[in-house]
């Protein structure tokens, strides 16, 4: 039911963990099923140099989190904000239709992490 890439990122997830000195943290959840993603980012000169995640959810939720943290590394904040749910799903070789909305929270969690970073900068 899942693509090879989804299974790869699910069984060997990249960038799992918390970040003690994170510059921004975003948490996104799906209230219906409880899927929850936490993404932490490290920013240097307007560029995301590191990203980590922790996720409660199904196989695709974990694969999406892993993929987003991979995609975002080295990108400027503007480029990172432009990453769409569809782009994440495409990079994974597609997601089953029923999983497209419920498990595809990575891009939203990332946006929240960037917003968190920006609000911290204003202080």
């Amino acid at each position: 039911m899942y693509s090879e890439k989804v299974m790869d990122h699910f069984t060997n997830p990249r960038n799992v963990g918390d970040m003690e000195d994170a510059d921004g943290v975003g948490i996104e959840g799906n209230p219906t099923c409880g899927d929850t993603m936490k993404i932490s980012i490290k920013v240097v000169d307007n560029r995301i140099v590191d990203a980590k995640f922790k996720t409660f959810g199904c196989g695709s939720a974990i694969a999406v989190s892993s993929m987003v943290t991979e995609m975002v590394k080295g990108k400027t904040l503007e480029e990172a904000l432009a990453i769409s749910k569809e782009a994440v799903a495409d990079a994974l070789g597609g997601l089953p239709p029923q999983k497209m909305h419920c498990s595809n929270l990575g891009a939203d969690a990332l946006k929240k992490a960037i917003e968190d970073y920006k609000s911290r900068q204003k202080k």
């Binding site: 699910f10 069984t11 409880g34």
Partner: peptide
């Protein structure tokens, strides 16, 4: 703390 489908797949 963990989800069923993820368990089934692993």
């Amino acid at each position: 703390f963990i989800e069923g489908e993820a368990m089934l797949l692993l």
